[in-house]
């Protein structure tokens, strides 16, 4: 366990403004990237990332100092993203009539390969997406993803395989041919 993290957390719990700011700056890239990949919307990602840090500050006294801090924060972020996606799913979605009736050639196409994969990622189920983003964005192992999502490794493997295959099928359906 990194001693600097413990000191930082203790300083945050004592109400030190500089330590709190340092804490946020240290992990904001990690949390914000996960949120953007999960939600596919930058403003929503900023809101959810802020919620993640607020929750982390409130629950910081419950953090087990024996365990590393990063997976603990990733667990909070994954849960908040899932909650946000569920709430978004309950909200009515405005119908884009132009996209439905315009000819195929007028529909905007992804600018690059990364956007193509990101669009395919957003069509996955929440669990598959969560698993895929944690595995590739943070370069985690299946075991680490299982610990963060608090699921068995076998479940994570199945979700990951399905996520890969569905993205590949989606790319194939769109006629995308990798070079």
């Amino acid at each position: 366990m990194d001693g600097s993290e413990v000191e930082l957390v203790q300083s945050c719990l004592n109400g030190n403004y500089a330590s709190q700011r340092k804490f946020v700056e240290l992990f904001q890239g990690l949390i914000f990237s996960i949120c953007v990949r999960m939600l596919g919307h930058r403003q929503d990602a900023e809101d959810v990332a802020q919620e993640v840090f607020l929750r982390a500050f409130r629950k910081l006294h419950q953090w087990d100092q024996v365990r590393p801090l990063r997976p603990w924060l990733l667990t909070i972020a994954a849960n908040r993203c899932r909650t946000h996606l569920e709430e978004r799913g309950r909200r009515p979605v405005p119908c884009d009539l132009d996209a439905d009736f315009l000819p195929e050639r007028h529909v905007s196409k992804p600018q690059d390969d990364a956007e193509e994969v990101q669009n395919a990622l957003l069509t996955l189920r929440h669990e598959y997406r969560q698993c895929f983003v944690l595995f590739y964005q943070q370069d985690l192992s299946v075991e680490e993803v299982a610990q963060i999502l608090e699921r068995p490794e076998g479940t994570i493997k199945i979700w990951l395989h399905r996520a890969r295959k569905e993205i590949a099928e989606r790319l194939q359906q769109r006629g995308f041919q990798p070079s």
Binding site: G29, E46, Q50, A114, V117, Y136, I167, A168, Q172, P178
Partner: peptide, 29 residues
């Protein structure tokens, strides 16, 4: 396709918020 997905995701980097995120978070807290 799987190799393509693996190659694209390998280039995923960290993204930063477009404003002073830490100050906003501490202010809200």
């Amino acid at each position: 396709h799987l190799q393509f997905i693996d190659a694209v995701t390998a280039q995923w980097g960290e993204m930063e918020p477009s404003f002073d995120f830490s100050a906003e978070v501490i202010k809200a807290y």
